[in-house]
Amino acid sequence: MTGPIIRIDRLDKSFGALKVLDGLSFDVMPGEKLALIGPSGSGKTTILRILMTLETISGGHVEVCGEQLFHMQRGGREVPADEAHLHHMRRHIGMVFQHFNLFPHKSVLDNITLAPILTKGEPRAKAEARAKELLEMVGLADKAEAMPSQLSGGQKQRVAIARALALKPRIMLFDEVTSALDPELVEEVLLVMKRLAAETDMTMLLVTHEMGFAHEFADRVLFFDKGRIVEQGPPETIFRHPTHERTQAFLRKIIAAGHRV
């Protein structure tokens, strides 16, 4: 594909009277690593949740891999997407959540193989071989038979990353994946993500409060406030020479709170 892999066009999202996204537009190119930063409530997590179809949209269009995400053509007219269309679109996208959301009743291995077996009809042996490769990659080869409750937060999050990768999505969404972790466990998760960014051509969107990591990881940083992009550009520009007053104020606050930039 030569064009953008994600096109967001005049996207609106409201929760009741609260407008979370306000006429938002931006494109993401294939293979791009994007960091979405901004104060809480600025709408950045909502964008990821919309891309994962966990939220509906209130207006506008979202295009993924050249197809409309929330609309489809029927009889020459554009109509809201049905579950079958959403199912068809979701195969492009994987997501890692703040609270891992592992299935507590399934072993680490079964957490990873469940979706490939069910949604792609992969034979169990093949799915398990791939799951073990992924566990190797995230440094948890010895935990295949463990239950999620026996793992630390950092280990759980690494399993969640392996689980999302098992479906080989072209786009990966990371929603504050280290926010729920004890500080000493953050690094092991970030390391896995750095390797992933370096070794694959997956498109990645990252919502984070780890500015140091965003700086290192991203090709482009989008600063959000009140449902709009205030400022965007290469990390060097956004973090070292932000032009917008609100970006400067936000970064000052983050630094004052003790985070590295």
Partner: peptide, 25 residues
């Protein structure tokens, strides 16, 4: 709700979500 959202992100069908993740819990 986290559990249901994980099943959506893994692209399970509504029946598979219920059968393999929600009902067992």
């Amino acid at each position: 709700r986290d559990q249901r959202e994980a099943t959506v992100a893994l692209n399970l069908t509504p029946y598979q979500r219920m059968r393999h993740v929600i009902l067992p819990q």
